[in-house]
Design a binder for these strands. Sequence first.
DNA 1: CAGACCGCCCTTGTATGCAAGCCTGCCACC
DNA 2: GGTGGCAGGCTTGCATACAAGGGCGGTCTG
Lengths: 242, 242
Amino acid sequence: MSGDIDQRIMDAVLAGRLLPGSRLGEQQLASLFEVSRTLVREALIRLAVRRIVRVSARRGWFVAEPSLAEARETLEARCALEYGMLAVAAPPGPAGMARLRGHLRHEQRLLAAGSAAERSVQLGNFHVHLAEVLGNAVAAEMLRDLTARTMLIAALYQTPRDAAASAQEHVQIVEALAAGRMLQAAAIMRDHLRHVALMLQPVPAPDPLAALRHALVPGGTASFPAPRPGAGRNHMSFTEQE
Amino acid sequence: MSGDIDQRIMDAVLAGRLLPGSRLGEQQLASLFEVSRTLVREALIRLAVRRIVRVSARRGWFVAEPSLAEARETLEARCALEYGMLAVAAPPGPAGMARLRGHLRHEQRLLAAGSAAERSVQLGNFHVHLAEVLGNAVAAEMLRDLTARTMLIAALYQTPRDAAASAQEHVQIVEALAAGRMLQAAAIMRDHLRHVALMLQPVPAPDPLAALRHALVPGGTASFPAPRPGAGRNHMSFTEQE
DNA sequence: CAGACCGCCCTTGTATGCAAGCCTGCCACC
DNA sequence: GGTGGCAGGCTTGCATACAAGGGCGGTCTG
C-alpha cells in the first residue's frame, strides 16, 4: 500500500516513540520495513509536505522541530479554524452528538488508566472528530495534520499541562453544542486553544550547555541558539509490533 | 531545486493551462523538464498530498477533479478558517493595511485589463495575503493550497461569476479592517465565500453519454457516475516560456 | 601539545532498469 | 456483421546502481 509506511512513522510520532529531532535514515527505515529506499523516501516526502518531518539536504531526515514562533502560529491557525468551524456550522444531529459523547467517555477512561501518549492523542482526536461530526471532511483532514504537529509542539515546549483540564473543556464544548449554542462553543474552543498556547515555554529542553551559557551570558538567553533535545542523537525506538 | 517542478506544474494549473482531469505523464513531464522520472514523480507525490493532482494506480497522474461534495466542503473549510481568522485576530498594523490596499489596487488593474486566469489567481491571493498580514504564516500556507483547489473547483462547477463582485467584497473587508471592525470583516468574508459556494452548479460539463444515461435512468442522476470533462483526453498545453 | 588539513565513510540525490498491470486495437470465430 | 479473446504497447511501481556532498577522525606539521 501507499500510505502504509507513512502511517507507521506517523503512529510512532504520535505515540511519542519518535521525538522531535529524531533521525530517520532512509536505509535504516528501508531495512526495518523490508522495502527499498524508494518507498521510504516517498513516504518521507509526503510527511515533509505535512510538516511532520523535514529533510536537511544531504544530511538526513528528521522528525520536525517546530520553532516557538511556528508553534504559536500553528495553535493560532487551529484557533481560527476551529473557532470559525463552530461559529459558522449548524449544530450537529443526534448521531453526531452521540459520537462526540462516546469520544468524551473514551477520554475519561484514558484519564483514569492510560499512558500520557494515549491521552494526548485522543485529546487531539476530539478536534478531528468534531470537524467530522460538523460535516466537514476537508477541515477534519487539516486538523488531523495540525493536531499531529501540536503533539510535536507539546513535546518541545509544553509544560505538563493537566490533561484533565483539557478533557473538561471538551465536555463544556459538547454541552454547548447540545444546547445549540454554537457561538458559546466557539468561544470555549478559542479559549481552550489559547490556554494551550499560553502554556508554551520558551525553553524547549534540557540543554547540555546550559551551565556554560548561563555562566558566560548571565543576563540574556538569546545570544546562543540552544540545541534541540537530542539533536543528532538517535531516538529511534520503533519497537515494531509483529 | 526541490520545489521547482512542483511550482511549474502548479503555475500551469493556476493559469488554467492544465484543466481538471488533464493527464500528467511522468515520462512526458520528465522529457519536458529534462530530468528523470524520479524528480517528476516526487513532485507529483507532493502535489498529490496537497490534493492538486491524483494518481490512479498504473493508469496515470491527473489534475485533481474535486467532486461537488468535496468542492462544497473545501469552501466551507475556507469559510470556517477565514471567518475565524478575522474574528480571532487583532487588526493589522499600518504596514499590513498598506499591503492589502496595494493588492486591492492590483486587483482593480487586472479587472480593467487582465486575463480571466490572472484575475482569478489574484482574487485568490487576496486571501493568502490577508492571512500573512494577520501574522499567521501557517494559515497562509493552508490557504495557498485551499485557494488553488478553489481554482480547480471553479473550473469544474463555477458559473461565470462576476470577478468585479468578488473584488468589491474584498474592498469591503479591507474597509472593515481599517475601521478595526474585525467581526464585521469576518461576517463579510463568510458571506463572500458562501456566495461562491452557492454559485456551484451540479452539472460540471458536457457529458457525451447524457442522452443514453437520461434514457436509461430518467429519474435519478446518481446511478451512473458521470465522466469528468475530458477524462482521458489530453489537455497538456504547458507552453513553456523559455 | 595544539591546530589545521586531508581522506574515508556515510548520508542523501538522481537516474535507470526491470516488473506488473491496464487499455486498445486487431483478429478469429460464431 | 458482431462479439469475444488475445496480444502488444504504454503506463506506473519498485528496486538498484551510481554520483555528489558533508562530517568526522586521523595524521601531519608547526
